[in-house]
Design a protein around this nucleic acid. Structure first.
Lengths: 329, 329
DNA sequence: TTGTATGCGTTATCAT
DNA sequence: ATGATAACGCATACAA
């Protein structure tokens, strides 16, 4: 590999002068600047960020830990984070836990060993080991999606969103409303959204039917299976179903189609997340837009502010959301 | 940050000894090993990959350049690449050009400045600047998706796949077959798949109708618009449409639904890519599985082999594909 | 305006 | 079996 020393030699200058040219720092005459630049151009020299950051203690890299790479939510978050950081000259290094929660700590360590300037963690669950790792990390961390006391987080109003969506269903004349959620290890999606659903039922004086409450797991297939389970195990059938993600909803809809249940006439359904495809399926899906782009942007800004020392204390940002009414209710 | 020197001091050893413990290299007595390990544990010391790779000339990082992060194809490729590389102790650093082809060169340079051991480029187009950059890069590069002479590539049989799919449509009794493609800057998808379509028509003695050939751009919206354009501009209407991606197909299907065209009875449609959702929409989409997981795996293996010097000459790998017959034809 | 010297944290060579 | 030391490529304090 070609180094700054060789450039210096070729340009008849010292490495410090080349460094000055590279960084626009200190004095350097126009003449030598041109000479150096010419050599750099000719040789295709690219400075080593490695060496640079070993010296400066700054990598301009933010580590981003995601639970999966296959959902609209994740890709929109990551894109927004990336765009915002790129504007400020930062790059991201992505690591994917593939939903293995136990790997989160491992990935934090891995990224820290790469000396990232900061970390953004899209969290699906919070356990003691992870909590300890986050709290003890000398590298600034921003968590997206789960509320953690004493840690900088960006969260959705999961409870309110689910409650409001359930109320919308109730307003449409339903009182037999099923629910497809996810496991409670995911506090935000598994617990809070379910609590919102229950609160809305309760507020409307509608009794809870346990036969109508089932779990899925963030993909089409388990959405389908959950719907099947709900219909097969219930003595009285629901006329509407609230699901906690669009993917689950679409899986559930396939079951309905297969069994010739008209949506929304025989059974209504809602998703959450406003995935791009939700608008293009038939019928189009009533869902909740959690403003992922804005969330990603906020996360990027927050981590940079923490790094710059502009944000000293843990900050909690609650994102807004929008109910998107379409044809499935 | 805590360094190897401080560990050495705390453990009453030299930094060389600590290094030996860390890397399981050379002799070190069981006693001191334990002593060192204990200090490492207590302090939470994490070695700096920066410094390490400055010394060893090896980062164990592969740069992956993708055109977008929002499609199934990309996320499955990246996941497969990541899984395979992780097995061998490599990490990936992802950069996203957001479909701005001119940024590819910039990203290659960016990643090279990070001293990545190798690069995997998911290409959508090939131009002279990019070609020159790839050919001159001292860092090994594997390209996915586009054929480039003299460069290691993993490609699909785009021509054959499109041709075979068109033949399948013809076998189903159609002879008025539309085509929604993408711009020809994308050789594989824009040119080769179109050529396959044309070859199939030609082989069956079906004349080409230019009114039935339109372009979209890898998203639902332009798929919808392309379908609209095709139907509005054509005097005779097609009874089937071949599209080059599932996303485009789903966008087109929405137009059909809106205009009460029954699929496949009034109009048949096919996609390509076997996106997860293609199975769950109604009707389910006939498509082509390009075996993305295997492609990603091959790419990962190839780049590692090149790095290890096991693969000296540029290698071209052609992936297989499977036609997936479902209900849209 | 330019150059010399030092150190960032690590590994590897060479003594001991 | 262990330690002192140099080197990796760069930025910077200081000298010239």
């Amino acid at each position: 590999m070609i180094t700054i020393k060789e450039i210096a030699k070729l340009a008849n200058a010292s490495s410090s002068t080349v460094s000055r040219v590279l960084n626009d720092s200190g004095y350097v005459s126009e003449e030598t600047r041109k000479r150096v630049l010419k050599v750099i151009e000719e040789t295709g020299y690219i400075p080593s960020e490695q060496a640079k950051s070993l010296r400066t203690k700054k990598t301009s890299v933010i580590g981003v830990i995601i639970p999966r790479l296959s959902t609209d939510t994740t890709s929109r978050l990551v894109n927004a984070i990336n765009d915002e950081l790129a504007k400020k000259g930062y790059q991201i290094i992505l690591t994917n836990t593939n939903l293995h929660a136990e790997k989160e700590v491992e990935h934090i360590k891995l990224l820290r060993s790469r000396q990232v300037d900061g970390l953004i963690l899209i969290a699906t669950n919070v356990n003691d080991v992870l909590l300890k790792e986050i709290r003890n990390s000398p590298t600034p961390i921003v968590v997206i999606g789960q509320e953690i006391p004493g840690v900088s987080v960006i969260v959705n109003r999961d409870f309110e969103a689910a409650k409001q969506m359930t109320q919308l269903i109730i307003e449409n004349g339903h009182n037999k409303i099923g629910f497809i959620g996810v496991h409670e290890t995911d506090k935000a999606v598994g617990v809070d959204r379910k609590a919102g659903y229950l609160a809305a039922l309760n507020g409307a004086g509608i009794p809870v039917n346990e036969q109508w409450i089932v779990d899925a797991n963030f993909d089409y297939q388990t959405g389908y299976r959950a719907m099947k389970q709900m219909m097969e195990q219930s003595t009285i059938k629901p006329t509407a179903v609230l699901t906690v993600t669009d993917t689950i909803a679409i899986g559930a809809m396939q079951y309905m189609h297969e069994h010739h249940l008209a949506i929304p006439d025989d059974i209504a359904i809602t998703g959450m997340g406003n995935s791009k495809v939700s608008q293009y399926i038939v019928p189009s899906l009533t869902t909740i837009d959690f403003l992922n782009e804005q969330t990603g942007k906020e996360a990027a800004r927050l981590i940079l502010n923490i790094i710059d020392g502009k944000e000293k204390r843990p900050k909690k940002i609650q994102m807004k959301y929008r109910i998107i009414k379409r044809d499935s209710v």
